[in-house]
């Protein structure tokens, strides 16, 4: 029975000692520990959140960076394409111009050649006429060197001339 009857002396001391212990620890012990740990927990939570935000920002920045690079690449290829096109057009134009120029030169040359050919032909014809006249003169002189020949020739000429006048008259009558 001794075990389950609380002893007054022990009750008295227990109240005093436990009360004192509680007072000391509640004032100088536990609140300091718990508040510090809670402060630390809050700081850890905050840092974790901050880290998350920073990560998100970094991801966004990386994305922007990638986009910029892609855009630059696109611009670069466009510029290259344009440059190639410009080059091609310049070459093409130059070629066309050159062709036109050469055509023009060729046609001019053709015209000149034709003109020169004409004049050359004309000269040749003149020479040939002169030559023919001199040749026929030489032949005539040769044939008319004798008196008989000269006489025969004159007769023939007179005949021919008579023939010509008779031939002409009927024609005039017709008209």
């Amino acid at each position: 029975m001794n075990l389950i009857t609380p002893d007054t002396g022990l009750l008295f001391w227990m109240v005093i000692i436990f009360g004192l212990l509680f007072f000391i620890l509640a004032k100088f012990g536990f609140p300091i520990i718990t508040s510090m740990v809670e402060e630390r927990n809050a700081a850890i939570d905050k840092s974790l959140k901050d880290a998350e935000e920073v990560e998100a920002m970094m991801v966004a920045a990386m994305k922007e960076h990638d986009e910029m690079i892609a855009e630059v690449r696109r611009a670069q290829s466009e510029i290259l394409k344009e440059a190639t096109e410009a080059k091609n057009t310049i070459i093409r134009k130059a070629r066309e111009e050159a062709r036109a120029e050469s055509d023009k030169i060729l046609s001019e040359a053709r015209v000149q050649i034709a003109a020169e050919k004409e004049s050359a032909l004309r000269d040749i014809r003149k020479e040939v006429a002169i030559l023919a006249v001199s040749v026929s003169e030489k032949i005539l002189r040769e044939q008319l060197s004798s008196e008989a020949a000269r006489k025969e020739y004159l007769d023939r000429l007179i005949d021919e001339a008579g023939n010509i006048s008779t031939d002409i008259r009927p024609e005039e009558n017709v008209n």
Partner: peptide, 29 residues
């Protein structure tokens, strides 16, 4: 009777031990 019995002494010693442990720990913080 408020004698310092075996249990009271043990109570005092253990309370001192607890107080020292917790206060030293709080001191660190």
């Amino acid at each position: 009777d408020i004698s310092i019995t075996k249990n009271v002494l043990s109570l005092m010693l253990s309370s001192i031990l607890i107080a020292v442990l917790i206060l030293l720990s709080a001191r660190w913080y």
